[in-house]
Design a binder for these strands. Structure first.
Length: 410
DNA sequence: TCTGGGGTCCTAGGACCC
DNA sequence: TCTGGGGTCCTAGGACCC
């Protein structure tokens, strides 16, 4: 048995089953029991109801394929405001039990349930059942629950039995449980690591947990890194990953990408699509209060090869129209006329929030211009009917893109 | 008609300095 | 002519997650 040094904790992991599809079924009774797929707007399946899963639909399957093989499935676009609302309601219920809730994603959370047996007069397992029932009754959402002594084991437990499963892994059950789990199922182990370790005979979670300490040194012939070591520790019952109760409000990067309806060699379309991503990425940054110091633009060809270019700005920016020339130059370097492109994107990095820090003289000179820009953007953004189309980019002939907010020449 | 969109973190390797 | 150690900072790219 693994030696557990810290006092065992009690962590619950809750995972909504086929969340997006379940929300649609919850608000629309006609969809209950039907094979429902979400993702009509993206061209691939992003959520699949259990009825559709039974038919054989897999996540990431392109819609055209689904329509062809499974003509009876109901394909819907995602309603992300609705999903967000259900997510909030879900976490509100969890907070009725404990303030120590980590919102890991829209449909997943961790709860510290240590010490809750006495106030709720029940075992941890009964507590799980209680929460599961309440969520189903109040929101109509099926959820799976896992309970164990740390985050990784709780997450593994919740995925063990779905949908509406409830699995508890106590300290002494860890080894027998891990033996049943393929390595790929472990949180943080992906296809690459699983395939690599298979060569050395490590196929299940228990074998991984039992890897000797020496494997994790630089000299070892099996190359593993620090995150792998942390996963091993977690599987052995140690608590490496702490719960995080603050809601996320800091970003390392903000990105926007969009795949075209059909690939194109037309530089005007690619440029317009790229600018549209630039606009919406900056819009998100402004909404979060960020200024941007650096960005990376990329183009993706039909053959799935990427080319990218980085732009470091002399000053932090919030408005892309102020750096239009730079963007255009970068695009010219990136774009190769003979290649068909299928997507463009942008990643904003080196983000910083407005602070009281001294504005340099140089920046002050720039400030007046920025003010004008801000005013202009406000006008554009508060008038949704104002649609310049793509005419400012594409004076030759109108080309239909999803673009509706231009970057103005100044 | 193959393969969306939005994130995070880690590591290797190069540049540069002492 | 051949030889070091550091240390830091940056970037590209991989791997993973939902």
């Amino acid at each position: 048995m693994f030696q557990i040094h810290s006092w065992p904790k009690a962590i619950m992991h809750l995972d909504a089953d086929a969340f997006f599809a379940s929300v649609m079924q919850a608000v629309n009774p006609k969809l209950k029991g039907q094979p429902v797929i979400i993702g009509a707007e993206r061209g691939i399946a992003t959520a699949i109801s259990y009825e559709a899963k039974k038919l054989g639909v897999k996540r990431g399957m392109p819609m055209w394929e689904i329509k062809k093989i499974y003509p009876k499935v109901i394909i819907l676009p995602g309603d992300y405001d609705l999903f967000s609302l259900f997510s909030q309601k879900l976490f509100t219920i969890l907070r009725e039990y404990s303030p120590e809730v980590e919102e890991y994603s829209v449909d997943e959370g961790f709860i510290n349930i240590e010490g809750l047996r006495r106030p709720f007069h029940c075992s941890y397992s009964q507590l799980g059942k209680k929460i599961q029932n309440q969520i189903y009754q109040e929101l109509g959402l099926p959820v799976s629950i896992g309970i164990s002594i740390n985050k990784s084991l709780a997450k593994l437990a919740s995925s063990f039995c779905k949908p509406q499963g409830l699995t508890v892994i106590s300290g002494k059950e860890i080894e027998t449980f891990l033996e049943k789990i393929p390595l790929l199922k472990v949180w943080g182990i992906g296809p690459s690591t699983a395939a690599y370790l298979k060569k050395f005979g490590v196929k299940n979670a228990l074998q991984f947990a039992k890897l000797p300490e020496g494997i994790f040194t630089k000299q070892s012939r099996i190359k593993l890194n620090k995150p792998h070591w942390e996963i091993r520790q977690e599987l052995r019952g140690q608590s490496i990953y702490q719960l995080c109760f603050e809601t996320k409000n800091h970003y390392q990067s903000i990105s926007k990408t969009h795949t075209f309806f059909s690939s194109t060699k037309n530089p005007n379309i690619v440029w317009a699509e790229l600018l549209n991503n630039v606009e919406s990425a900056f819009k998100k940054a402004r909404k979060l209060g960020y200024s941007v110091k650096k960005m990376s633009l990329f183009l993706k060809t039909k053959q799935f090869s990427y080319s990218s270019i980085e732009i470091t700005l002399e000053q932090k920016q919030q408005y892309p129209m102020l750096i239009r020339k730079k963007l255009k130059q970068a695009f010219s370097k990136l774009f190769q006329p003979q290649l068909p492109y299928r997507a463009t994107g942008i990643v904003l990095t080196k983000l910083s929030r407005q602070t009281q820090e001294q504005i340099s003289l140089f920046e002050q000179l720039d400030k007046q211009l920025t003010e004008k820009t801000r005013a202009l953007y406000q006008i554009l953004q508060t008038q949704p009917k104002l649609d310049f189309g793509t005419s400012l980019y594409l004076p030759q002939k109108p080309i239909k893109t999803r673009l509706n907010l231009p970057i103005l020449e100044i």
